[in-house]
Amino acid sequence: MTANGGKHGGGGGVKSDERLFAIAEHLRESGGAGVTELANHTGLAKSTVHDHLSTMRDHGFVVKDGTTYRLGLEFFAYGQSVRTRHDVYEAAAPIVDDLVESTGEMAWLLTHENGRVMYLYGGAGETEVNTNALIGSWAYMHCNSGGKAILAHLPDSAVESVVDRHGLPARTPNTITDPDELAEELAAVREQGYALNLGEDLEGIHAVAVPLLFEEEVKGALAIAGPAHRVSEERCETELADKLRASTNDIELNLAYR
């Protein structure tokens, strides 16, 4: 991304917006940076970077600590607003807490947008995973149990669009990377009612998920995950899948009477 060119970039976006997002993205990834670092990373002039930072600071989207700029809490306020806009969040959050308590494993609420899934809410159970670091993060759909549970209930054209946009990158040796194999997997998910992730995203981590369907719409997915030695394939297909299916009934009721 460079500072040269006309009003619109190659993707049709407004150049000044592209520059601002490039700055925000680097601040998110780095945890904070100065004007020189941001200019070197983005290819923008220091004066341009400074102008964008000043505007973002005026609106609360960045804060300045000495010579270092960091993302501001205004982003959090926007994120909270976006999350609560999803009615499935209010309906499922207490159910996720119940699953964490009853299983001792990680439980997650995920939803999809633009061909990926995001962790909207979750709990760590007996694991040492920092769930706060995962909430709000994106994952590929083809190697995520929640993603596959959602994909299985989308039209074929939507699945093809996801594959065209994001591909089927191999996260581990167990990741499905062939479209025909993915289609077979999604057909099995529809038949059995749950999706598995047996070390397909992270080696040594297993997960099982069910779709959250309401009024013929895929609202998201509910998943339980944990280390493979505790969350075995057999446990996923029996105890944990049963708990997830029972939990979806409560979530559907919450959605119906919200």
Rank of each mutant, 00 (worst) to 15 (best):
K7S: 10
G10V: 14
G10I: 13
G11V: 02
G13R: 11
E18H: 11
E18T: 07
A24K: 01
R28W: 07
A39I: 04
L44R: 01
K46C: 01
D51A: 14
D51T: 12
M56Y: 07
M56G: 01
F61N: 02
D65W: 00
Y69D: 07
Y69Q: 06
L71H: 04
E74V: 03
T84I: 13
A92Q: 05
P94C: 02
P94A: 04
P94R: 01
D97S: 09
T103A: 08
M106N: 07
M106E: 15
A107T: 06
A107S: 14
W108L: 14
V117S: 03
G122C: 00
E126H: 10
A139V: 09
Y140P: 05
Y140C: 02
H142E: 05
G146M: 02
G147P: 03
H153I: 00
D156G: 11
V162L: 05
H166T: 06
G167L: 05
P169D: 02
A170R: 12
R171E: 12
T177P: 03
T177M: 04
R190D: 08
E191S: 12
L198N: 05
G204C: 07
I205C: 05
E216Q: 15
E216F: 13
E217F: 08
G226K: 08
P227S: 10
A228G: 07
R230T: 12
V231L: 15
R235P: 03
R235V: 14
E239M: 09
L244H: 07
R245N: 12
N249W: 10
E252V: 12
